[in-house]
């Protein structure tokens, strides 16, 4: 297996551009999912009537369907209803739709992990519901949900690999083009794997470190 290093160097700019596109989409997808997750978990925590049901249905639908079908539906199906979205908009909406429910679950499990005695103590010293959430529940819940929020970010970044299917010029598409045009199979695949390792390995190491740190934050149980 001879690797054409020259080819790899020449194709570096292509991969660099593609990585920026991927990171850009992942950034917005993660940011919006966090917002959706925060709002949804707040709705579940305060048991907002009517909306809780909607959130539960949304979470189930989004968790039990593949991202590929979600973005195909958005990209190819929605224009038939007169709603035409660009590929990158579809990608961000798809990622946020999928990620929102995962983030919501992460926040929710954090909130649920706060022990009852903490909430009761808070109430007994006369905190209002908002104060209770602000000073007792959220700080503890956040430290518990942090590892799963991190895992979700990694998950969403990995899921961006699918976006090539709706003609976004990400690393998957660049690889496929290079294989198709120059038959440089090994070089392109090597670059593909290396690119993902570079993007995800630091995050994964950070996450392992976070998980260890967070154990110190457990109290009140």
């Amino acid at each position: 297996m001879n690797i054409d290093w020259d080819f790899i160097i020449r194709s570096l700019p292509l991969y660099a551009d593609a990585v920026w596109i991927t990171l850009h989409l992942a950034f917005w997808g993660i940011l919006i999912s966090l917002a959706i997750g925060l709002v949804c978990s707040a709705i579940l925590y305060f048991k907002v009537r009517g909306l809780s049901k909607v959130v539960k249905v949304y979470v189930e639908i989004s968790r039990n369907t593949p991202l590929l079908i979600q973005i195909f539906f958005l990209y190819f199906g929605f224009p038939k209803l007169g709603i035409t979205l660009s590929a990158s908009t579809c990608a961000i909406i798809g990622l946020s739709f999928l990620g929102g429910s995962y983030m919501c679950e992460a926040f929710r499990s954090g909130i649920e992990s706060v022990s009852k005695s903490q909430i009761e103590s808070g109430l007994s010293i006369g905190l209002s519901n908002t104060q209770l959430a602000r000073y007792v529940v959220i700080p503890q819940a956040f430290s518990v949900s942090l590892p799963s929020l991190g895992a979700n970010c990694i998950f969403l970044l990995k899921e961006t690999s699918i976006l090539g299917a709706i003609s976004i010029l990400d690393v998957m598409n660049v690889t496929k083009d290079l294989i198709g045009m120059y038959y440089k199979t090994f070089e392109s695949l090597l670059m593909l794997v290396v690119v993902y390792v570079i993007m995800l390995l630091p995050l994964s190491i950070l996450l392992t470190w976070l998980e260890k740190r967070v154990r110190y934050a457990e109290f009140g149980n």
Binding site: E159, S161, M172, T175, T185, L189, L192, V193, L200, L201
Partner: peptide, 14 residues
């Protein structure tokens, strides 16, 4: 760390 789709590509092409 490496997405499943990348593995599919690696095995299918590589």
């Amino acid at each position: 760390i490496i997405p499943t789709l990348v593995w599919l590509f690696v095995f299918y092409f590589g």
